[in-house]
Computed example of a mutant assay.
Amino acid sequence: MAAPEAQPEHAFRNFSVRLSPTPRGARLARLLTAEQLRSWGLPLDPARQIVAELAANAATHGRVPGRDFRLTVYVIGATLRIEVTDTCGDRPPCPQPPSDDAESGRGLALVEALADRWGWGPGLRPRKTVWAEIAVAPEPSSPCSGPTSGLSKET
């Protein structure tokens, strides 16, 4: 039997989905990202929080009735890139400090704090893409799920 092929050091994995620009669509973006990262064996945080903030912004500030936003998550080597493309390209993201008593307005500040790099760029009119990148490594195996290291079961 042939040995399994080793994963290339710079494996490329991606996931992309269109979602409705609603609170439900933003929540689904977070849940789908978490499931995809689990399947890739990657840690959920801080990517899950970054997706939550970017998707909420797309649903709140980038919403155009009848037009979905797109979530794209991909890994190249040890970098996870998250992109959220909305259909409101005329409004660039403008992180501004909210007032102390504001109930919102901290999303991009959180993205900036959690991501290694982030930014935005115009897409095909009338779209814009806000992106964030973080360094990732596979989650270590659980100590209870690997080989027993020579331990024998007593009867």
Rank of each mutant, 00 (worst) to 15 (best):
I134T: 09
Q7G: 09
G123N: 02
S39Q: 15
A56K: 06
Q96M: 05
D45S: 13
I50C: 02
V84Y: 03
L71F: 03
P140T: 11
S20I: 03
A78E: 15
G123M: 02
L32W: 03
P122I: 09
P95F: 01
S20M: 10
T155W: 07
L114Y: 03
P98M: 05
F69A: 04
C144L: 15
E9Q: 15
R63A: 15
G105H: 11
A113C: 04
P4G: 06
F15C: 02
I76C: 06
D68E: 14
R81T: 15
R106E: 13
L80P: 00
V51I: 08
R127H: 12
T33K: 00
A29W: 01
D116M: 04
S149L: 10
S141I: 14
R106Y: 11
P147K: 03
S149P: 00
S20H: 10
E83N: 06
N14G: 12
R18Y: 07
E35T: 12
V75E: 09
L124A: 15
A56F: 06
S141G: 15
A26V: 01
A47E: 01
W118A: 05
V51M: 04
L37Q: 07
L80Y: 02
N14W: 08
P93I: 01
L32F: 06
G121N: 11
I76Y: 04
P21Q: 10
C88Q: 15
E83L: 06
S142F: 06
P95R: 00
P138L: 14
Q36W: 15
L42R: 11
V64H: 11
P43D: 11
P21S: 15
L19A: 06
R18H: 09
Q49M: 12
A109D: 06
F69Y: 08
L19D: 03
A3D: 13
P147I: 04
P21M: 12
S99L: 14
D100G: 15
L37S: 08
L37T: 12
N14L: 10
E35S: 13
A59F: 05
C144V: 09
L37F: 07
E5L: 13
Q7V: 14
D101C: 14
R30T: 14
W118V: 01
G89L: 09
G66S: 07
I82N: 00
L114K: 07
T129D: 03
G119A: 10
A3W: 09
G62F: 08
V130H: 00
Q96K: 06
P92S: 02
P21C: 13
L124S: 13
A2W: 04
A11E: 12
G121M: 09
S16N: 03
I82S: 01
L42F: 07
S16Y: 05
T60W: 11
A34V: 08
T85A: 07
L37W: 04
H61P: 09
S145F: 10
A11N: 11
S99W: 07
S141T: 15
S145M: 11
W120K: 02
S39G: 13
V84M: 05
V130M: 02
G89D: 11
G105S: 12
G123H: 03
D68V: 03
G107R: 02
V17Q: 10
R27P: 00
A102M: 08
K128I: 13
A55F: 04
V111G: 04
P43G: 06
P138Q: 14
L110C: 13
P98L: 07
R38M: 13
A78T: 13
S145L: 14
R13A: 10
E103C: 11
P43L: 08
A135L: 10
E139L: 15
